[in-house]
């Protein structure tokens, strides 16, 4: 509200500087059979425009829940979430999402899956197909443009899912363990693909994973979360040179960074273990 009241030049200035995503004091409480469970406890963080942020944490720490909330899919929460300066009330066109499962529409070909978003936003069939074909070329699946999802491998399906999310040209791309279901080799290839893709699209990316290596290879910043209730333990800046590829994983700077992260995770793990032991 203050922003709207401010004089015009200041408003423009603040819009330019404002983070792509602002999460402040986000708490999420689930009702379970045993009463209420605090899934996420007063989590706050900002993501700058164009930044690539990874959230890592053990399963059940609420990292996916945070992502779903930013996406507008998780309804009841406390706190404030602003995307591009405006509060989140539900799914919106400037936010795209890639899930752990590709969730491709099985009855649509690769091209029509990718064209779905533009079609829903009122683009003509031809315009949507042009957008789709560009993205198909970008993910290297030209030969499979007319194939149905069930004929593609897991990695290919996830590439299509990414392209489908990008078809709406989102300002923010949310990725919920998108490579979690893939085998190690495919995952490494997908990580490199994503890094290449990232240089060509102009989106802010928040990427959730439980794989610390994946997080460091991809991100500008890694947020380490703890479980039960979910909190942010540490905000680690990854100052490794770009362009990167997964081969960076043997560099000394990489390894010391990874050690820092693992120390935080180990300390938290021990604390949680002792706590559960005591109770």
């Amino acid at each position: 509200m203050k922003l709207a009241l401010a004089s015009a030049p200041t408003a423009v200035e603040s819009v330019r500087r404002q983070p792509a995503i602002q999460v402040s004091n986000l708490s999420i409480v689930f009702d379970t059979k045993r009463g209420q469970t605090i899934a996420v406890d007063r989590v706050s963080f900002d993501v700058a425009p164009g930044e690539f942020v990874c959230i890592v944490g053990p399963s059940g720490c609420g990292k996916s829940t945070v992502l779903n909330t930013i996406a507008g899919l998780e309804v009841p929460f406390e706190g404030d979430i602003l995307v591009e300066g405006s509060p989140v009330h539900g799914p919106r066109p400037d936010v795209g999402m890639v899930f752990q499962q590709p969730h491709l529409f099985p009855w649509k070909s690769v091209r029509r899956n990718i064209a779905h978003g533009p079609r829903m936003h009122g683009k003509s069939k031809r315009e949507a197909n042009v957008i789709a074909d560009d993205l198909i070329a970008m993910i290297g699946l030209k030969r499979f443009a007319d194939a149905y999802p069930n004929t593609l491998s897991g990695g290919m399906q996830q590439r299509v899912a990414i392209a489908r999310a990008l078809a709406n040209q989102p300002r923010v791309l949310l990725m919920d363990e998108p490579f979690g279901a893939l085998d190690a080799q495919t995952r490494a290839v997908m990580q490199d693909n994503l890094l290449e893709l990232r240089d060509r699209i102009n989106a802010t990316i928040v990427f959730v994973t439980h794989d610390i290596d994946e997080a460091i290879v991809l991100a500008d910043r890694v947020l380490i979360m703890s479980a039960g209730p979910g909190r942010i333990l540490r905000d680690v800046a990854v100052k490794l040179p770009r362009p990167r590829s997964s081969s960076i994983m043997v560099e000394p700077t990489y390894l010391s960074l990874k050690k820092d992260c693992l120390d935080v995770i180990r300390a938290e793990g021990l604390r949680a273990f002792n706590q559960s032991d005591a109770s």
Partner: peptide
């Protein structure tokens, strides 16, 4: 009908009133 498909469709901007013809029926 896979909830995941519905979430994916929502994120892509499928209006709720079109969900029946776009996702649920198929």
């Amino acid at each position: 009908v896979d909830r995941g498909l519905i979430r994916a469709a929502l994120m892509l901007g499928t209006p709720r009133r079109q969900m029946l013809q776009e996702i649920v029926l198929l």
